[in-house]
Structures are given as structure tokens and as C-alpha cells.
Amino acid sequence: MFDLGGRNALVTGASGGIGGAIAEALHGAGATVALSGTREAPLAELAEKLGERAHVVPANLSDADAVAALPKAAAEAMGSVDILVNNAGITRDNLFMRMSDDEWAQVLEVNLTSVFRLSRAVLRGMMKARWGRIINITSVVGTTGNPGQGNYAAAKAGLVGMSKSLAYEVASRGITVNCVAPGFIATAMTDKLSDEQKGKILAQIPAGAMGRPADIAAAVAYLASPDAGYVTGATLHVNGGMAMI
């Protein structure tokens, strides 16, 4: 649908359901992809499935040194990073009153601070190329809030403000910065929910179904494409109408 031929994309969290689908969609549109994640085996499996134009660059984003090394490894493997998809994220859910400093800090470190560091590192090449795409995967809960996810919602909402600020700074250089905010997406994690739990979730979604990873990937492919060059600082909500914001 969108042509990403000749573009090089780094996708974090590519070992997960949504990240894997994003990498597949970008690759399918012609991009070379660098797959990052903490677990190397699923990344290697995905790279093999994709075939040519796929590289594996494992990194633990809770480790600042690994975050610093990742953009360099990706650029070495592909030649440049033209598209950065910050998809990796962790949860450490707990009721606010029970949440530890550590649970708070871990989620902010991986879901917000690593995105700042990775984005800062890839900007130099994008500025020189006068072209770049940074796409941050946020969440509907960054806008609506969610009990038990004070840390996660704070990080996701933080990404939105950060993305808009950066979008201002680099718009004149042909670089766009946008967010994609998934609602409930069917992944290995949601498969574990009981039918009753699923029923409660579905009752909140006008579309009557959970989203698929491919629904998120399609939104990312659009924002990564030259066709979306005039879209920046935006959040594209992909949630089946669950929150019309």
C-alpha cells in the first residue's frame, strides 16, 4: 500500500506481537528492518521469516549503555536509520498506593527515557538526510488513564508531549514525529484472559472486537511513508471506537 523502498527502519520490541507485525508491515512495504528486543531467539526467527533486508539487533532498553549502542548497531547493519519505531514497552501494574518507586522507575525508564535517548541518537542522520520518521507507540490509557497503571499511563502520556515538542523542532527538516495509540489488541497476553474478562472488554468497544496487531502495523506503515509527510505531532488512535479522542 505504502512504498518504503530504500528506507531503513529500526523497530524496538519486535519480539512482541505488535512489534513483530510492525516490522513485517514495514518490510512488506519495501523497507530494510532492524529488529530489536531483549530476547534474541524470536527476533532471529522473525528475521528468517522475513528473509532479505532483515537484521537482528538485540538490546535491553532498561540498560542505558545498551540504549546508546542500539542506534549505532542498527546504522551499522543497515547504513542508516531513516525510520525509528519506538514500540518496546513494559508494564509493572499495581494500585497507586501500593506502587513501589522501583515499579514506577522501571516503567518510566523503558517506556519514556529510552525513547528520548533513541530518538536523540537517530536525529543527526535524519537531519542530514532531510528526511526521517519517528513513530512512538503509546496507548489509549495514556489519554484515558487506567486503574493499576499509573506508571504506564504517565509514561505513555509523556511520550505524547515529548513527540509534539520534538515535532516542532524538526518539522522544517523533513522529519515527522507521531504517535500511534492502540486500544485493546489481541496478543499472546490477551489470549490468557477468561471469556468473562474478554466479554467485559468487548462491551466497551463499539467495533465489538479486539484489534489485531496488523491494525496497528498499518497505521505505522502509513505514518512512516512519504505519503504522511505533512502529518506531524499527531496521535493516531486505533481502538475500534473505544475512546473517540
Binding site: R124, M127, K128, E169, V170, S172, R173
Partner: peptide, 9 residues
Amino acid sequence: SLDTVELVM
């Protein structure tokens, strides 16, 4: 200000 960053680069 962004031009000055680019010049330094």
C-alpha cells in the same frame, strides 16, 4: 538555533 546545531555537526 537548530541551524547552529547543524553547523556544529
